[in-house]
Design a binder for these strands. Structure first.
Lengths: 142, 142
DNA sequence: CATATTATTGAATAATATTCGAATAATATT
DNA sequence: AATATTATTCGAATATTATTCAATAATATG
């Protein structure tokens, strides 16, 4: 038995999806070529970045989710984008954004459970430039 | 000139997208019917909820983004799901989750700018059951 | 107001998803 | 271990859908 499901999920998290022009056309009651025209326009001006699957994370072994706030050392504070790029590379990091105020960066992290989360957290804390962190978590059931 | 772009964006935020089976098949080097089989399986067991567009929010007039933490009154604390349902109905609320710990609920809110955000915040604070809030925000450019 | 650019759409075509069926493989049952 | 049942794999046929193209209309620009 081939087990391509993990590969599949990985791809569908990144993209590999596309708009359903015919369905949208029917819904808005416009010709599908018109819908096509507008969608391509949004894509061209990169207002639309990609199309992705939305999962029931509890069912794909990523039921634990945490928002991790990071404060940078004053040295790293000069270039938070660089650290952001590195943190985005973790496959468990779903999103990474630069905040205004008390905390510098917020990460959204998904793992199987809290233990796995702490494993990831340990690696993040080891990153050059990270001064301190705090987090808020929740669990997706079903 | 028709302006169907706002309608289009609204639909693509909810769903109205679909996986690209042929592209995935080529990438994983498996027959497209096999990919189809696995995707339908994931959909049937509702591991995949839907497929959505990912936007460059700065370009669709939603450049301001905030994570809003909510603490419930002891009365509302008994049934946070109910409030969660109500808060999810705001079109500016992108996600709503129930936290463990100090704060009860986290909302991700997207608006055009900070003024618009405060308008939404005012409505949320007026909701029965909300005791206090705090938030962290950022801006998506380009 | 003349011209250029952008928007709109039907018809034709190309690409893609889906269904079907049959073969095989995995798993469960006696 | 034999048999039955269920799940997987995948090619061929079909149904749907996206895309291209070309013609027209609307709008913007000088």
């Amino acid at each position: 038995m081939k087990n391509i499901t993990p590969k599949l999920i990985k791809l569908l998290k990144e993209g590999y999806c596309t708009p359903q022009i015919a369905k949208i056309a029917k819904k808005i009651k416009e010709p599908s070529t018109t819908i096509h025209y507008y969608i391509k326009k949004l894509e061209k001006e990169s207002a639309i970045k990609t199309y992705k699957a939305v999962f029931n994370y509890g069912k794909i072994n990523e039921g634990f989710c945490a928002y991790l706030f990071i404060k940078l050392t004053s040295k790293a504070g000069a270039d938070p984008d660089k650290l952001l790029g590195e943190l985005s590379r973790y496959e468990e990091v779903e999103s990474a954004d630069i905040l205004a105020g008390e905390w510098d960066i917020i990460l959204k992290i998904r793992t199987k459970n809290q233990d796995e989360y702490y494993r990831v957290l340990k690696n993040i804390l080891a990153q050059e430039g990270v001064e301190k962190t705090t987090f808020f978590h929740f669990t997706e059931t079903s």
